[in-house]
């Protein structure tokens, strides 16, 4: 069977700057794949390429065996890839519930269906109590979770999480880890960018490491953790810091 997502030799240049260089990897159904790398390694750029904000300069991306590079973000979302943003983008002057309803409409035929789905997802992500709050009034931890809730409401098969843990306190981190594990149980495949080593090593089935836009390692968390290239580029820095 074709992998859920296949990235084939993708490069993205901004003028003379190579943000992503010839990156290839694949994601199978049901996996949680961690995408790590130092700041500026091209992780978010790669997300933007997968999600359709950018067209790859070279290479192609296949989703369920079909080429998706070149499609618009809303088309890619409809096919089943949802994402969150590192810098959260809540629909500020909408309530938490309305935020999720807006994305639940994608696969609902009526408003009632969209509302029901949104409420179910808010319970799932533990935001139900805050449903009537304007989303700009939410604390950061909950805004990060709202990003996840909104992405889930589009019924994705593949969820791209961009630093959903950054800026969270330890309690919130644990809550989010639980939510991500529950998302996996729902049968949703996850590609996650994360800086917290403990988080990424504990939840990922596989880890892909980028450095200066190039893939320098791929494998189980243990293998990657022992890889000298990775230690030099990333973990070494983190340990010495």
């Amino acid at each position: 069977m074709a992998p859920l997502l296949e990235i084939r030799g993708v490069s993205k240049f901004f003028g003379g700057l190579a943000a992503v260089v010839d990156v290839s990897f694949r994601i199978d159904r049901g996996e949680i794949v961690g995408l790590i790398g130092p700041n500026g390694a091209g992780k978010t750029t790669l997300f933007n390429v997968i999600n359709g904000f950018y067209r790859p300069s070279k290479g192609e991306i296949l989703f369920k065996g079909k080429r998706i590079s070149g499609l618009k973000p809303h088309q890619i979302c409809r096919l089943g890839i949802a994402r969150t943003f590192q810098v959260v983008k809540p629909l500020q002057r909408m309530t938490v519930l309305d935020n999720v309803i807006a994305s639940a409409f994608l696969r609902s035929s009526s408003k009632r269906e969209a509302v029901e789905k949104a409420e179910e997802i808010l319970r799932f992500t533990g935001l139900y109590e805050d449903k009537d709050m304007l989303s700009r009034g939410l604390p950061l931890g909950k805004r990060k979770r709202l990003e996840i809730a909104r992405a889930l409401a589009t019924d994705p098969e593949l969820l791209l999480l961009d630093e959903s843990f950054a800026g969270l306190n330890p309690t919130e981190q644990n809550e989010s880890i639980e939510i991500i594990k529950k998302i996996k149980e729902r049968g949703i495949t996850i590609l996650i960018i994360e800086h917290h080593m403990k988080v990424i090593m504990s939840i990922s089935d596989r880890v892909v490491v980028l450095n200066y836009g190039e893939k320098i390692a791929e494998g189980s968390p243990d293998e990657v953790g022992r890889n000298p290239l990775v230690i030099e580029a990333y973990l070494g820095e983190a340990i010495s810091a």
Binding site: P73, C77, T154
Partner: peptide, 10 residues
């Protein structure tokens, strides 16, 4: 509220 967010929500 956010055109990019809207676009990526389908």
């Amino acid at each position: 509220e956010d055109q990019d967010a809207a676009e990526s929500l389908g």
